[in-house]
Amino acid sequence: MFKDSLFDPAGPVSAATRDLFFDSVGLMLIVVAPVFLLVGFVLWRYRAGTGAAYKPHWAGSRAVEIGIWFMPVVIVVALWFIVWNRTHALDPYKPIASGLPPLVVQAVALDWQWLFIYPDENVAAVNRLVFPVGRPLTIELTSDTVMNSLSIPALGGQIYAMAGMETQLNLLADRPGVYDGRNTMFSGDGFSAQTFAAEAVDVSGFQSFLAQARASGDALDAAGFETLSTPTIAGPVRLYSTVEPKLFHTIMAAHGSMPEMAPAANHAEHAP
């Protein structure tokens, strides 16, 4: 039932996130479980008419009060360490350690489709993201429209795609498969169908994908992008054999990105 979700991780990021989920739930149950037991006990024991002990003026106890502050504080301090460490360990910007260099894909959010540019391979795909299993995947994101958010739950987290800005998401699939990917940020009429297939394939599969793209004969130039970016609901998968150089940066610049503000290594800039 949780196929290809956080509970069926297909990569190290989602596996670590799943572990984090169970760790934090377990930690919190130390405070929360007693609440259920105590409430049940108190409601039953002290219902009116039982003749149980009745202390109408008992309204404070130093020892008890210290106790009820102490427990949550301990748990939350433990949470701090977990939050600090895991937030750094699972930072979407952090490259994933691997013997292989990452595959860079540039994702552009459109109304209401996803364009994936493979800059090193000079091909592109729409509504379909193919990448080799076992090799880190670095997705650079921007948007040619409203704010979007790219998510592949089986592999890990999501990150926003915003016009004129570049954000980044690092993922790795350690088993082959076809996973659901989508925009999670409401973006208009076509939002519900703004999904794509994220396919983790072996090396030969990836090579044949590239070959297939190159054989398509479609070129993604300025005119091609113009056509592509017209609002489309549930658009088909498309492949492009060549991509105009620096198209990703042209799209960002069209929305007023300033070169000094978009160094790829830095995180999205923030308002103070």
């Binding site: 996130t17 919190m28 890990g156 999501q158 940020m185």
Partner: peptide, 23 residues
């Protein structure tokens, strides 16, 4: 409310929020 509080703490942990945000 304590159930909601627990899921709130889950969402407050950034790596978990990366997964559950907008869901």
């Amino acid at each position: 409310f304590v159930i909601g509080g627990m899921t709130g703490v889950i969402l407050s942990i950034p790596p978990l929020d990366y997964v559950f945000h907008n869901t």
